[in-house]
Design a protein around this nucleic acid. Structure first.
Length: 373
RNA sequence: GCUGGGAUAGCGAAGCGGUCAAACGCAUUUGACUGUAAAUCAAACGCCCUUGUGGCUUCGUAGGUUCGAAUCCUACUCCCAGCA
């Protein structure tokens, strides 16, 4: 089952609160979804996620398909049973990997030292070379649904072409059109193979071009998807460009469906996204920044700043990561000095504590946003 | 005391006549990170500046050989190992 209900609409902006319901439970929106790309939110246990209040996490089709394999996961009872995470799971399609493996081809070298691309586009799908062993794989819109069915996620994403930045108009257009073709094929395939448990979201592309974004919004919104996502943002285009995209797309999204801003992000970006009518967000930043030693701080939950705990000025700093913070790390009395030491020593605990803190920040931010709306 | 081995930038450690301000690793500093090829990556790291196929001073100390020395020779100082 899948449903979405808007519970409150702000008068000042497009912001709204809602309830997303999957067969695993209800999710209050706006929501931030931590990334468990390979079936784990790096460094954080599911109990901790649950205690932080997260109701849905993200998995990745590409990664789980390669290892341990969607067939294995199916055999072991699906991703929820496999991971022991009993709340909702959204799986990304692998479209972003097409982008990130493709964009990185310039720097990729094979065994012979030659540069080669890991990705090749075709009309029916995309041929990947696994970053793990170089083996070739074909992802089609249909195949990606099959894989996500095997994973048993609650929300599936269609295969899209995540356009890199900067992209020429022609390139953005071609990518968008392929995305649309795949979206159509996906929804047709899904209608034949539909089950009652899973939902399917479409993805809008169009890079930083207003007419393309508007066209894509219309096209994707007119297909019978359960939710609408915006992709191809936070790919290096910068905040101004991204906020423009939100402005072009946000007001034109179908009101009754959940709006998902993919790959975002920074606390300020989430605030901006909510104002433009988005309900769902995901991002690797809280855990990645955390592992790299950077944490978010805020005083008023409007403006945020990052501090890098690797810096030596924190060596003697006995304050918690953030003042008056009730995250599992700060509230237990862990100091900057200690965490700084752990990070520099590459001790796992350090990364865990910073990840927990950053995840808490986003969870608390969305909670406050919901309250405010 | 004798016999070997050694002393290189913050540390470890290459180099053993020219292309050496000196590989590499660590540490340090700075920067990046937005649907995770990311517990990662990039840059700086003797001193100076007009930042360059730039200038200056370095490879235990002091001399010497050589057009040219971190690299060869001599003396000295210190370290380490074995034997007395």
């Amino acid at each position: 089952m899948f449903s979405f209900k808007v519970t409150k609409q702000s008068k000042n902006s497009l912001a709204r609160t809602g309830i997303l319901e999957t067969s695993r439970g209800k999710i209050k929106t706006p929501v931030f979804m931590p990334c468990a790309t390979r079936g784990s939110v790096k460094g954080v246990s599911f109990e901790e996620l649950k205690n932080l209040g997260f109701e849905i996490i993200l998995g990745n089709t590409y990664h789980l398909y390669l290892r341990p394999g969607d067939k294995l996961i199916k055999k072991l009872g699906g991703l929820h049973k496999f991971t022991n995470w009993q709340n909702s799971i959204l799986t990304d399609s692998g479209g972003y990997q097409v982008f990130s493996l493709g964009a990185a081809y310039k720097s990729y070298q094979n065994k012979n030292g030659d540069k080669e691309s890991l990705v090749r586009f075709k009309k029916e799908g995309v041929i990947f070379k696994s970053h793990l062993d170089g083996s070739k794989h074909l992802f089609t819109p249909e195949k990606v649904i099959d894989v996500q069915k095997n994973l048993g996620s609650d929300i599936m994403m269609v295969l899209d072409v995540c356009t890199e930045y900067p992209a020429s108009y022609e390139r953005a257009q071609v990518s968008m059109e392929l995305t649309h073709l795949w979206a159509k094929k996906a929804i047709e395939y899904w209608q034949k193979k539909r089950n009652q448990k899973q939902a399917l979201f479409g993805i809008i592309q169009g890079s930083t071009y207003q007419d393309l974004r508007e066209e894509s919004t219309k096209f994707i919104s007119n297909l019978p998807f359960d939710g609408i996502a915006v992709g191809g943002v936070s790919v290096g285009e910068g905040k101004t460009n991204m906020y423009n995209v939100l402005k072009w797309v946000g007001p034109n999204l179908p009101q009754g469906k959940p709006h998902y801003l993919m790959g975002v992000g920074e606390p300020e970006d989430i605030i901006e996204g909510v104002k433009m009518g988005f309900d769902m967000f995901d991002c690797v930043l809280p855990t990645r920044l955390g592992r790299h030693g950077t944490i978010w701080q805020t005083k008023n939950w409007q403006k945020f700043q990052k501090i890098d705990l690797r810096k030596s000025k924190y060596r003697y700093d006995q304050k918690p990561m953030m003042k008056d913070c009730s995250c599992p790390a700060c509230s237990q009395g862990y100091t900057r000095a200690y965490i700084s030491h752990l990070i520099k020593e590459k001790e796992m605990l350090g990364m865990r504590l910073t990840s927990l803190h950053n995840l808490f920040i986003l969870q608390e931010l969305t909670r406050r946003i919901r309250e405010k709306i």
